[in-house]
Amino acid sequence: MDFDFTFFALLMTNGVLIGLMYSLIALGFVLVYKATDAINFAQGEFVMMAGYLAVLGAFGVNFWLGLIVSVLGMAAFGFVLERVMLRPLIGRPVVAVIMATIGLAAVLRGIWPMLVGVDTYNITLPISDEPIELGPLLLQPVQLFGAGVALAFLAGFTWFFLKSRMGVAMRAVADNQQVAMAMGINVERYFALAWAMAGLVAALGGVVWSSMLGVDTHLALIGLKVFPVVILGGLDSIVGAIVGGLIIGVVESVAAGYLDPYVGGGTKDFAPYVLMILVLMFKPYGIFGKRKIERV
């Protein structure tokens, strides 16, 4: 069999674009984990909720209005959620927080179909859906748009955590809550901020993904798909989210392109997990995760 370079390049670009869109969702996990040391298992449901808000917020008429409703709505949702559900759990074991998010995921998955029915809604981006030709490759404008948004936000949050005083304070909170408190950092406010930011990126991810997949409860499964991305990249690293997203995107795409014809499909869904397990054997904190510091 001849090696078809065009086919390979197509799989690669497709993988890279999808991967960046995964990174955008992964960023939601990273933000919460960075500040609170807990994993938000409801991140996929956040994305689904954001999709519903984007569609229904503007009654499907205006895309931009829908986007604004979704972004504000999700940020507010994250903020309120921290107040109501997570603040009482401060000082309890992290497992309690994780269980609470799993419960929240189930609730969200149940409530939204109850409110709006089980139909699939569509979002149309205000850009043309004519594929863009790049040499032999055809690129989907939706994917390019998604990847662009992802890159912009990943860069923005990287700057925030490394250079801004608020970002440094947030990392200090993640490192040691008690000491941060004694240094005059209002820990609860930063938790609320982290959740609001997680809501915000979920809103963007939700809009981007639902314009590709449509909005229904299946959108929540994206949380599960992105899980290997964050584990692979390291739960608290934004760079890790990008690299993890790219790797998973490419692996998925290439696996689907080359293996599916032989096994009859489905490799796309498990290849990322196989890779995740392999990486964890060698790098238990992920590729870019912070390791526990032990001085000898």
């Binding site: 440094v168 990392r171 200090a172 993640a174 490192d175 040691n176 008690q178 000491v179 510091i293």
Partner: peptide
């Protein structure tokens, strides 16, 4: 026990 923010 010092308790610096180790990762910073």
């Amino acid at each position: 026990g010092r308790r610096v923010f180790e990762h910073l």
